[in-house]
Nucleic acid binder design. Structure first.
Length: 789
DNA sequence: GTACTCGTCATTTTT
DNA sequence: TGACGAGTAC
């Protein structure tokens, strides 16, 4: 009997506690299927349980199955769960990221793929420098052709599966870009390096063009499982189709409502295509949510229902309604931050740990104000999405030496460290080497060597460059003799990196990281024992898994991250900040429908991260790009049904946050709102501070996060439920400006338009108007002849 | 080679 | 506002 034969004593337990849909998905026979898995519906569980089930029932051997994810984290998670479910050696199984699996295939068939066995992988930063280098060589104006944009162009084309000759170029600019793309490909090929997109495209072509290989792998992978299918781009989907052929079963799990990576080429439309191409009606919806309480889920459903292009899905839970969603209209960004701080402290007092709370925002720039407030309050926090370990400057430098040890002809690595640490090889000398390399059509290293030999490089430059070459050659010799860990140590030492950082004022951290790198090599050797522990293996690992070094994950700290980064995670309490038009949805997205729909999915993702408590907040004014921006509440807040929400009103705060009361004068709103208490003994003219909230709706109920103790000193006394938030902002704003947002106006020259936004005060006041024919414009109120229409 | 000044720019991001 | 890159001055 096979080692993967069913174990009746074991596998029924796998299926325990699955709901009917999950069970159906897990136990599907060998057919293709699309599993529409809503947020928190047990997606990963279904995926891994299916794998375990297939193996344990003997339907497939571990080797005949391929499961693909987007992130290393997801792949790892799958492997971990799998090992926990059944005694199995997951090593050698084809479970990994698209890039990881493609890398594996390309290494195995490097000849057929026309790559050196030791090909190196360029990460985004490496790719950028490769592009810059090429721009110099080709003498292209990098003002007109920006490296970043060229990168997008190239990656975009590759993500579509397009080689230069297949890219349609109807205008001159595009033609130039295509030319550059072609030159870039030639450079990469010459240097034996491959960027991320190339990894996939090259692998796709390998299988597409080589019938024998295609046949072999189709024969092998009877079951293909895809995670986060909505995030696949065109090329990735083609790759899956190619591997699947007609026979194999593709089990695709995804959620079109959580497609938030359209901007980097993901095509949620692949899900519809998949239904046509594969599913034969096998669509399973997982709609029971095990994460969030009812109100939160209802809010998420209500928001996402505003999107038109959906496959259709409605989450439900039997967990009960839970807490209302708390919404806070802050006067300013500082006020918002302070509110969040106070609320977090209050939650902490109820016994919730910081680690169970997350503070989310749309864009990274928003974190500063929040961090500042958290820091002042002495709350531990951790910001996700910073620099990753293998992306640090000193690490990249050390890796460059390692790469040169493996392959001295790696021009990217050569350029990076030829004069780092500084060894007197200036820009002139480097240029000289590059020119020679072009003339000889050789690598920088080879050009430098012959240049010195032929006395084309002379004097001081020759001495200095010669010394550098000597270091590289020495490392190369060592690479063949000593183990990876010693080699790394030698790199750090002989390159002079260690000495350099020893002298640098802020070098201590860098030295520590370099020591950590040496540790990482040791760890790598251990972890991958018996596998490819070579230098190349480690370098590949470094490019493909840039940041698995997550320090301090276990500390009890509040988690700060963008909404994007929060996808796939869950927290007891979620604070979603900056819910203002222009920020979320972001300005750059509001002009097209697809853009707004993706933003709305982002909102959906954000909301569904919360298990028990969800706080939404927005600020009437915020510092952005060094200027004060006046915001109105996000449309997404309006899309949440009022009965699910509780509006939190804060009386004047002890310290007083500038811009609060003054911004929203009481005069307009009638002022029958009176706070009954003063919190913390400050001047408590709450009528001016709170006046912009319509008093008639306030419930005057004391609020505390626990709902157990009244009126904690977190400082919130009231909750109100005004009709709509947008209206409130307009009322307030009407004092400062003669027009309200949303109001139709008439301009002498531009004609009819609608008011979108305001900026500045007094004589600086400007108004943003969208005109029917002339688009969106900012007009100075002082000069523009605007009248109400 | 480094320290400075100036200009520019400003979603989201994994591999 | 503030980060970063390019260019300039020593």
């Amino acid at each position: 009997m096979n080692s993967f034969a069913p174990d009746p004593a074991h596998y029924p337990r796998l299926l325990e506690n699955l709901n009917p849909e999950q069970l159906k998905a897990v136990t599907l026979p060998r057919v293709s299927a699309l599993v529409l898995a809503g947020a928190g519906s047990g997606k990963t569980r279904v995926l891994t349980t299916r794998i375990a089930y297939l193996i344990q029932t003997g339907q497939v051997s571990p080797a005949a199955l391929l499961a693909v994810t987007f992130t290393n984290k997801a792949a790892k998670e799958m492997l971990t769960r799998l090992s926990a479910m059944m005694p199995i050696n997951t090593r050698g199984m084809w479970i990994g990221t698209f890039h990881g699996l493609c890398n594996r295939l390309l290494r195995a068939h490097h000849r057929d793929a026309n790559l050196p066995q030791t090909f190196q992988i360029l990460d985004s930063a490496d790719q950028q420098s490769a592009i810059k280098r090429l721009l110099k060589v080709l003498n292209v104006d990098d003002e007109k052709f920006k490296p970043r944009e060229l990168g997008w162009f190239i990656n975009g084309a590759k993500d579509q599966g397009l080689r230069p000759n297949a890219v349609e170029a109807t205008d001159d600019f595009t033609r130039r870009q295509v030319e550059f793309y072609q030159a870039y490909e030639a450079q990469c090929q010459r240097e034996g390096v491959v960027d991320f997109a190339e990894l996939l495209l090259r692998c796709y072509e390998l299988l597409a063009k080589n019938a024998a290989l295609q046949e072999h792998y189709r024969e092998r992978f009877k079951f293909i499982l895809v995670d986060e299918f909505q995030d696949t781009n065109r090329l990735q989907y083609q790759w899956i189709k190619l591997l699947a052929g007609r026979e194999n079963a593709v089990f695709a799990v995804g959620d079109d409502d959580q497609s938030i990576y359209g901007f980097r080429g993901a095509e949620a439309a692949n899900m519809r295509e998949f239904q046509r191409d594969f599913a034969d009606g096998n669509v399973i919806k997982l709609e029971q949510n095990y994460r969030s309480q009812g109100n939160i889920l209802d809010a998420a459903n209500a928001v996402i229902q505003h999107n038109k292009d959906r496959l259709g899905k409605n989450l439900w839970t039997d967990a009960g309604k839970g807490e209302p969603i708390r919404i806070y209209a802050a006067a300013s960004d500082n006020d918002e931050a302070q509110f969040i701080v106070n609320e977090i402290k209050a939650l902490e007092r109820t016994g919730m740990s910081l680690i169970d709370m997350a503070l989310l925002y749309r864009s990274n720039a928003q974190s500063r104000v929040l961090e500042h407030a958290l820091f002042r309050a002495g709350l531990a926090y951790r910001v996700y999405g910073g620099l990753r370990f293998f992306e640090r400057q000193e690490i990249k430098h050390a890796l460059a030496y390692l790469r040169l040890a493996g392959n001295p002809d790696d021009d990217g690595a050569f350029s990076r460290v030829v004069n780092f640490p500084p060894r007197g090889i200036g820009a002139r000398s480097v240029e000289q080497v590059q020119d020679l390399a072009q003339r000889y059509n050789s690598s920088f290293h080879a050009a430098a060597a012959s240049g010195i030999a032929n006395a084309e490089i002379v004097g001081r430059a020759a001495t200095m460059i010669g010394a550098f070459l000597k270091i590289i050659d020495g490392l190369k010799v060592s690479a063949g003799v000593i183990a990876l860990q010693e080699l790394t140590e030698e790199c750090v030492e002989k390159s002079g990196l260690r000495a350099h950082y020893l002298n640098e004022r802020e070098g201590a951290d860098r030295l520590e990281n370099l020591a950590e790198l040496v540790n990482a090599t040791a760890q790598f050797q251990e972890e991958y024992e018996g596998e490819d522990t070579s230098l190349i293996g480690f370098l590949t690992h470094a490019s493909l898994e840039a940041g698995e070094h997550e320090a301090g994950v276990n500390d009890d700290a509040l988690q700060l991250m963008t909404v994007h980064a929060a996808k796939g995670l869950e927290f007891k309490a979620v604070f979603l900040s900056g819910l203002e038009e222009g920020l979320f949805p972001h300005d750059n997205s509001v002009n097209d429908l697809d853009g707004v729909e993706e933003e709305r999915r982002l909102m959906y993702v954000a909301v569904t991260r919360a298990r028990e408590r969800l706080y939404l907040s927005y600020a009437g004014q915020r510092m952005l790009h060094g200027q004060i921006r006046y915001g109105i509440v996000s449309r997404f807040v309006d899309e949440i049904p009022a009965p699910l929400c509780k509006w939190i009103v804060v009386p004047e705060r002890q310290q007083g946050y500038p811009g609060g009361a003054q911004m929203y004068p009481a005069s307009r709103t009638g002022g029958n709102f009176k706070a009954e208490q003063s919190w913390g003994g400050g001047k408590s003219d709450a009528s001016s501070r709170g006046a912009w909230v319509e008093g008639r709706d306030s419930t005057d109920r004391a609020y505390s996060p626990s709902q157990q103790s009244n009126n904690t000193d977190a400082g919130y006394g009231r909750e109100g439920a005004p009709d709509t938030s947008r209206a409130r902002f307009e009322t307030a704003r009407a004092d400062a400006y003669p027009f309200g947002v949303g109001q139709n106006v008439q301009h002498a020259k531009f004609g009819e338009g609608v008011v979108l936004n305001f900026e500045g005060r007094g004589i600086d006041a400007r108004v943003q108007v969208k005109f029917r024919s002339d688009g969106v414009k900012w007009l100075a109120l002082q000069y523009a002849k605007l009248s109400a229409a």
